[in-house]
């Protein structure tokens, strides 16, 4: 237990130090340039129904990965808040969720557009779509809950606890339940996945950098929002 909290503390300070650094932001942009160029120009397996939309793997799936990355960070900061009670950790948690929601919407919209051309309708009530919509409301409820409490510490504590519980439910809704039912989504309900056996080397070469690049971009935007929020918070507490 002591080791875990030591690792967490080290990770926390690492994030604090790297937040204003340049190197990983430059790396993010390089990764994204690579994935956007290679994502269109490199070869992909020829599959019926999917056709060229197989390239959606490079653009739609990383939106969810980016969302997941900032949501994980948000849970980390929520736990940290409950442990230490620092107001800025609460601000970090909420800005991570705000950024995650942005990528959540992008993921839903890109998924719907793709569904129109492969499944025949923007929304066909597929288990994957329905679960994603429910999980979206779950996080909307988080933001509404936050804004409905005026007292600062109470708001931070309640929303931190809610956030910690919302995260595993979101994971189960989006990534577990559709896999157990007859979802049409690739990788679910016995459909061919872009998984270990289907994803060939050419796609891996773009897919993994894309996942890393978009995740880092989400983290970058979250840190920007957090730094703005922190300045606002300091200004408000001075008055």
């Amino acid at each position: 237990m002591k080791i875990i909290s030591q690792i967490a503390a080290n990770f926390y300070h690492f994030l604090q130090r790297q937040m204003t650094r340049m190197w990983w932001k430059v790396g993010t942009i390089i990764l994204l340039f690579y994935t956007l160029i290679a994502g269109f120009l490199l070869g992909v397996p020829d599959k019926f129904i999917l056709n060229e939309t197989i390239r959606n793997l490079y653009f739609h799936v990383p939106m969810w990965m980016a969302m997941l990355s900032v949501f994980v960070m948000s849970v980390f900061y929520s736990i940290r808040y409950l442990d230490k009670g620092l107001e800025k950790d609460d601000l970090a948690a909420v800005e991570c969720v705000n950024t995650g929601m942005f990528f959540y919407v992008l993921g839903l919209l890109t998924g719907m557009l793709w569904a129109k051309y492969t499944w025949g309708a923007y929304w066909s009530g597929d288990p994957k779509q329905n679960s994603a919509a429910i999980a979206f409301l779950l996080y909307c409820a988080y933001l509404v809950l936050r804004n409905s409490i005026d007292e600062e510490q109470k708001r931070a504590k309640i929303s931190a606890i809610y956030n910690i519980f919302a995260f595993p439910i979101m994971i189960v809704l989006i990534f577990v339940i559709p896999r157990m039912t007859d979802s049409l989504h690739p990788g679910n309900g016995g459909n061919p996945a872009f998984g270990r056996y289907d994803l060939d080397g050419r796609m891996r070469a773009v897919f993994y950098p894309a996942m890393a690049g978009w995740s880092l971009l989400a983290v970058w935007i979250a840190t920007l929002r957090y730094r703005i929020r922190l300045i606002e918070y300091k200004n408000n507490s001075l008055d």
Partner: peptide, 10 residues
Amino acid sequence: FAQNGTGPEM
């Protein structure tokens, strides 16, 4: 990686 096979319409 450069070539494309024949088969489904790409």
